[in-house]
Each structure stands twice: as structure tokens, then as C-alpha cells.
Amino acid sequence: MSTKRKVLIGLLLYFAITAILILVVGNEGKNDEFQPQNEFLLTPWIAINIAGIDFSITKAVLYLGLASAATIASMTFIASRMQREPNKVQMAVELAYDLTRDNITRGNIPDQKLARRWFPYLAGLFFFIWFSNMLGYLPLPTNTEHKVDIFGLAVPTLAIYAATANISIPLALALVSTAIYHIEGIREKGFFKYFASWLPGGLEDMNVFGKAAIFSIEAISHLVRPISLSVRLFANILAGHLLILFMAGGLAVLLGFAALGALTFPMAFAFFVFEIGLVATLQAFIFSTLTAIYIGGATAESH
């Protein structure tokens, strides 16, 4: 049988299953009881309230702790048992280490002293975001809204969530990165000289108003940097989780249209592979690369 026919038969089967399900099950109408979007709801598990600020322990806190623990534990474990002839895990970690050192840090910060100073932060950023993203695709029993009975034990149902799918964690990381590059720039050049260096070169002949206009545009671009840095990571991970959730059955449940599930379920696998294979690593890489670029740009001799 030729490949073309195999593909055709596969596609036909795919649509036939959907068509049969439409005929058998039909449309049950809109469902108002079960709300899949509650997957992202943060219910306080242990309510803590200090001086009017909510410090409650929620799902996000658990994932944050897990990601931090995984980062520290795996890195120290591998570092403590380094071998001359590395096994596969050590090889992979050494490869990632080389990526963070040579590609992310040294490739974007030309000053070697500065690169050595900020390499631990950039590498930590990369590994923390990577572990946080990857943990997000591991189903963990965290959905306390619905319990499932396993041998008389009420266990929360499996759910996926990531610390980085919550705006506050990427925002905190982005604000730290922003503060670092401003401080590093001021330390390198002095307070007024640093802000003067925001103006691009080649404007010596321009009058004051033109310079002020360009300076305000540059100031806006510096203000937008933490927002774009945090929203990029947060929206990528949130959209990935939403896509997996809706494709894996959320859409069918929400619309009460079971046949739709057969059509969307294979897409959930495709998105899952895409998210794990590309987006999780790429976003960690982008976040730390951009931080390094900002530090390098703030301390560069000429703009």
C-alpha cells in the first residue's frame, strides 16, 4: 500500500469516528456544572493573612517550591558526583551549562568581569524557569475542587499548572532583571551618564527638542521591558496549558458535545509535544538571553 493511501485511510478513520460519535451521542447542550477553567483557580489551602496582604499557601506556591527544590537538588546532586567519564545525565547538564555560560552569558555580555559576575544569576534564571515550565506539564494531584476515591482515600484529581503560568512569578523575575541592568549600568557609567547613554549615537547635531523626543521614546521602551519580559513567559505557558486543557477534552465538556472530543484529542498530544519539546526550553532561553542582552546593552561603551 502506498503512503498516500495509508494517510488517506487514517484521515478517513479520524473523521469517521467523529461522525459516528455525532450520530450516537449527539449534542447534550451547554454544560454549566463543570467548569474546566477552574483549573487555573487558586483556592487558598492554608489561609495566611498578614497586615491585609494575602500570603495564603496555594497551588502556585506549591509549584514554586517544587521548581526551586528541583533546581537546587538536581544541580547540587550532579555537581557533587562529577565524573571524568560522564554518563548521559551529566553530559546533558554539562551541555546546558555550556549553553548558559558561552551562549547566553558570554555571547551577550562582552565584558568578561561582568559576565563572570552575572553568570550565576543568568544560569539560575534559565534552570529555574526550565524546571518550572517542565513541572507544569507533569500532571500532579493538585485539583482540590474535585476528589477521586482511591481505596477509600480522597485524593485530589490530577491537574497541570505551572508556577510560570501565574503572572506574579514572571513579573517578579522580570523586575529583578530590570533592576539589575539599571543598577549595573549606573555603576559602570555614573548616574547621569547612564541616562544620557540611552540616546543612540549620531545625534550630536540635533536640537534639544528632538533629543528630548527621542529620549522619551527610549524611556518608554525601557519601561515596557519588564512588562514584555514577564508577559511573554506568562502568556506562552498559560496559552500552552489552555490549549492542552481545551483540546484534551475541556472544549467537549464545556459545550456538551462529546464528538468534538474525538476530533480535538489528537491535537492535545501534538500541542503537548510542541510545548515540551520547544516552548518550555525556548522561553527559559529567551528570558535569560534577554536579561543578558539588557545587561550587556546597559554597560556597553557606545549605545
Partner: peptide, 20 residues
């Protein structure tokens, strides 16, 4: 290759800004 991924991620993020 590294420049391509940087550009890809920066451009892809634009779609997510509109989504957000």
C-alpha cells in the same frame, strides 16, 4: 540558529500579547 530562535520567540510573543 540561536538568532533564529530569539527572533522566533520575540515574534511569537506578539500573538500572545493580543491574546492576553
Amino acid at each position: 540558529q540561536s538568532i533564529r530562535w530569539l527572533g522566533f520567540a520575540l515574534t511569537e510573543a506578539v500573538a500572545f500579547y493580543t491574546f492576553i
